[in-house]
Design a protein around this nucleic acid. Sequence first.
DNA 1: TCTGGGGTCCTAGGACCC
DNA 2: TCTGGGGTCCTAGGACCC
Length: 420
Amino acid sequence: MYALVDCNNFFVSCERAFQPELEGRPVVVLSNNDGCVVARSNESKAMGIKMGTPFFKVKYLVDQGKLVVRSSNYTLYGDLSARVMSLLSEVAPKLEVYSIDEAFMNMDGVPDGDLPGICRDLIVKIRRWTGIPVSIGIAPTKTLGKVANHFAKKYKGYRGVCVIDSYEKMRKALSLTPIGDVWGVGWRGAPKLKAQGVETALDFVSRPSEWVRERMGVTGVRTWSELQGIRMVEEEKEEKRKSICTSRSFASMISDIDELTLRVSDFAGKCAEKLRKDGTAAGTVGIFIHTNRFREDLEQYYPNASIRLDVPANSTPEIVGASLKALRMVYRPGFEYKRAGVIVADIVDAGSIQQTLFGFDSGTRDRDDRISKVMDMVNTSGKNVLRLGTQRGGHYADGIRREFCSGLYTTSWSELIEVR
DNA sequence: TCTGGGGTCCTAGGACCC
DNA sequence: TCTGGGGTCCTAGGACCC
């Protein structure tokens, strides 16, 4: 069986873990730039605030004292996530961390009858040791685990743990699950299915597989099988990422190439760091820039460009250099840019890099690799203390609005000094 | 005034090969 | 005017997830 562990309202719960006075109050956490709502407490959900709502639309509630708001604090969330995951790994024979707030425990080998008890104890322990409330869904497939988890969250009677371990329970659960709530269906898929008379997950599995294949392709059939207890979603192998993206929206619009150069350099430097941390190198470096899609009064332009490297690289000078070359290919003056990003792809293991036939570039490569090594040694705190001349005069997150940020409860003292 | 960020997989269609 | 058949690889874009 799988046990899907999902943290309840994770970002809000992290804020509450260190600010107990927020307990019981309507709370939302905002995205970067304090842009939109990305996490809600049960109380703010009950007020009708939707996921993704732009903050300016609910600001009046904050002004009236009816809603508490926090800027997102990913350092804090990452830290608490690691603590929760480490508690899970003590119990699970195999643990797959699926996202910052979610993990699949593969409980194969543990007697089914023991699972509810183990999970109940785990919930209490996680709450006590980290302050984070979690719910657990137990089922033979991951997709059914998701279904079970929904019930565990929704109905208090389950005390956080819901099990689907029989044909009857499966049918019952599917009949109570709207098709749009099924993992893998999505907001585009649901209306199409409803138009064909499929309202619930049970309606869905009652259709023949060919019917599903025609309308939803092979992924649809996978979901269809999983809902009936047939494992189709594979175990995640511990593989490295195939692409890495660092992108940000700007607090205000930018049209100057020099200013864009600073931002793109920073994003590229961050990508290079992530590559080195993974022990990989990228064969392609791409950038994109975007005008503000919400400003219909302004002309829009959203080009992208990429550079193929002769030899995969992960040094800051090489990645930054390629990104700026790509930027110059597509930059056009006269536009107001709101967002930019760097994507590195065609990722390979750093150890397996083949030199070009004649090795013309090996001189600068060695130098660039040494530069990067030193940068990593100095930049241990995650802040760009040491950086290239083209990189911005600070951390890559400069120019990002964080008006409602709570304290840095779990970050180290040296970081604290730097942030102040 | 103000609207996030980081991933994966699948598919259709074009380019190219014989 | 008429103009094969079959295969692979790559890419962009769509859809989905958190």
